[in-house]
Design a protein around this nucleic acid. Structure first.
Length: 432
DNA sequence: TCTGGGGTCCTAGGACCC
DNA sequence: TCTGGGGTCCTAGGACCC
């Protein structure tokens, strides 16, 4: 729960700065190719399918985010638009440099996405603007990436402020939005969809009850909004009022799932080809998982036909599969993924996309001294919870049967272990 | 005839984000 | 011909338990 400051006149107002890289992918390309500066640049997705980033000059030409490139390629290339395929390794490295620079200004930092971070600006009253300008200048000096900074008492308002900093050149890339009247004036000019957390559907549903601007949302009755739209939207209402509900999340939690998926350059008709694709995704997913020292016992395979081909029947299916024990072993997981694929495969369709999702990720700790057995009858999620709890309690050198890095004889040893009959970790049988 | 109720777990799907 | 990939959180409803 967020601390409630609204009832206390002497409460210190919190202050968040959202630092957001301008046109991040395009800016990264420009760092290494300065001749791209001042020119319209677009970055394309996999298979050069659609537009995923644009420089300001490209935006000015009317190139939309997500636009299928094949529909726009010719006219835009005539206008001198420069096209790049995406290079995520480069963007990841540049992101790390930007974050490292920001950390020097404040250790209280939440890396929100590849190109955004929230910083605590608490205690900078009166010096906020100069401080923000210093941050901005140093990030540019050290990384070559231009950023915009929005400052406000809540994360949601900081997002709004950041947007204003970007849209308004006079701001010089820094917008402070601490004043209530200024907040209202700005919110009145925006669309609901400009608010963080409100997209098309919610916007439409809000419109049905007469709420059409962010200012109206801010003024709406919070309990009513909660009843009608749930806690998420209620939080947005409070955040828009300047009441902070979303705290700075400085310690990133372990990821809970990961996906490896691709759209194919051409459609796939044969099961054999699809098995090859799914094998590739499974092993790629396992690599990611091992790199983060995680393991899973729960995965999903999904396949899909081309949803844009309206003349064909659309078919999308997924199959989840449970492993008896958490693992990050490529062979084991690939085998499971392929059997899941067999369950969803439909001959006669042209498939355009497939993927493997790994769920309920747990830390994969090596078997060393202590062993616990968890019976197969225990559900995957309970098993994961139990394993997590064990890891926390006994530290790194505890066990998890069948997890990554487990000694090869684990299956044999498992046979020798007595089963336990509880999903409560305290009652798990200690066997080693 | 009358057919509990509260809690938790699980899963699928919706909605949103970058 | 050609339309991305990778995440999170919440909710609803059924199963199950006592």
């Amino acid at each position: 729960m967020g601390r409630d400051r609204s009832c206390c006149a002497c409460a210190v107002t919190e202050c968040f700065a959202l630092v957001d890289c301008n046109n991040f992918y395009a800016s990264c390309e420009r760092v290494f190719q300065p001749n791209l500066r001042g020119r319209p640049v677009v970055i394309l997705s996999n298979n050069d399918g659609c537009v995923i980033a644009r420089s300001n000059e490209a935006k000015a030409l009317g190139i939309e985010m997500g636009a299928p490139w094949h529909q726009h390629k010719q006219p835009f290339e005539k206008q001198g638009v420069i096209v790049r395929s995406s290079n995520y390794t480069l963007y990841g490295n540049m992101s790390a440099r930007v974050m490292k620079t920001l950390r020097q200004f404040s250790p209280n930092l939440e890396v929100y996405s590849i190109d955004e971070a929230f910083l605590s600006f608490d205690g900078f009253d009166g010096r906020m603007e100069s401080h923000a300008r210093e941050v901005r200048a140093r990030v540019y000096q050290w990384t070559g990436i231009p950023v915009s900074i929005g400052i406000a008492p809540t994360k949601t308002l900081a997002k709004i402020a950041n947007r204003a900093a970007k849209k308004n050149p006079a701001s010089g890339g820094v917008q402070i939005l601490m004043d209530s009247a200024e907040q209202e004036a700005l919110l009145d000019q925006l669309k609901l969809e400009d608010v963080w957390g409100i997209a098309k559907r919610l916007s439409r549903r809000l419109g049905e009850i007469g709420i059409t601007t962010p200012l109206q949302l801010r003024q709406a009755d919070a309990p009513f909004i909660r009843e009608r739209f749930g806690v998420v939207v209620e939080r947005i209402v409070l955040e828009l009022r300047g009441q902070s509900c979303l705290e700075l999340d400085e310690v990133p939690s372990n990821r809970k799932s990961l996906v490896s998926s691709r759209s194919f350059g051409r459609s796939i008709h044969s099961l054999q080809e699809m098995r090859e694709a799914v094998s590739t995704y499974a092993s790629r997913a396992c690599e990611k998982m091992r790199r983060q020292n995680l393991a899973t016992a729960n995965l999903i395979v999904f396949i899909e036909t081309n949803p844009f081909r309206t003349q064909d029947q659309h078919y999308r299916a997924s199959q989840s599969i449970q492993l008896p024990l958490a693992s990050s072993d490529t062979g084991r997981i690939t085998t499971a993924a392929l059997s899941a694929l067999d369950a969803v495969w439909k001959p006669g369709y042209s498939f355009k996309k497939a993927g493997v999702m790994l769920l309920d990720l747990v830390s994969a700790t090596h078997v060393t001294s202590t062993l616990f057995d968890v019976p197969d009858s225990v559900s995957s999620q309970s098993r994961m919870k139990a394993m997590d709890a064990l890891n926390r309690r006994f530290g790194r050198d505890t066990v998890i049967l069948g997890s990554s890095g487990v000694k090869p004889k684990w299956s044999l040893r498992r046979e020798m272990l007595s089963p336990c009959y509880s999903t409560d970790w305290r009652e798990l049988v200690r066997v080693g």
